[in-house]
């Protein structure tokens, strides 16, 4: 028998995962999705309360929650679009100009590892011409 507590526990875990994502990920769109996930956790709570209280108030709340989430999505995407136009990036850390005067900006110190060397595409000689051979190949022939 699944009780109210099970649903509340799962919702809490989902909320926690969303919170971690919101706090650590730097892509604005991912952050936004994580926030939506937290909203979903809250919606589960409401629906569970509705179920175990035997009335529909919780479900009504979820309806409004969905409406608010839709508003949020529209506005957030518009804002992201504008930010992207300004900074050509979706990194939330690009906008830290509202800090106190004299506080040094947060700069990423760890550098990316050098990209793995990419094998260049072989260049074929024009049809009918003999391809140039390396010395090894020439030796084998």
């Amino acid at each position: 028998m699944i009780s109210l507590w099970h649903y509340l526990a799962v919702a809490a875990a989902l909320f926690g995962i969303g919170l971690v994502g919101f706090l650590t990920r730097r892509n604005l769109i991912t952050m936004f999705l994580c926030a939506e996930m937290m909203l979903q956790a809250v919606a589960i709570n409401f629906a569970a309360f509705a179920r175990f209280h035997g009335n529909l108030q919780g479900q009504v709340f979820v309806m409004f929650l969905i409406a608010v989430a839709a508003c949020e999505a529209g506005l957030a995407l518009a804002l992201f679009l504008m930010l992207y136009r300004r900074g050509k990036s979706l990194d939330s850390s690009d906008w830290q100009t509202l800090r106190e005067l004299g506080v040094p900006p947060a700069i990423d110190t760890q550098s990316f590892p050098a990209p793995a060397p990419v094998e260049p595409d072989p260049v074929l000689s024009p049809a009918g011409a003999r391809p140039a051979l390396s010395t090894e190949e020439a030796a084998r022939v």
Partner: peptide, 22 residues
């Protein structure tokens, strides 16, 4: 790799806060 997708902001504190809360 890009800054926004391949870096995390304060992963230890963030994970701690999120799951401490949970």
């Amino acid at each position: 790799p890009s800054d926004e997708n391949d870096r995390s902001r304060e992963p230890r504190l963030g994970a701690l806060a999120g799951f401490a809360f949970t």
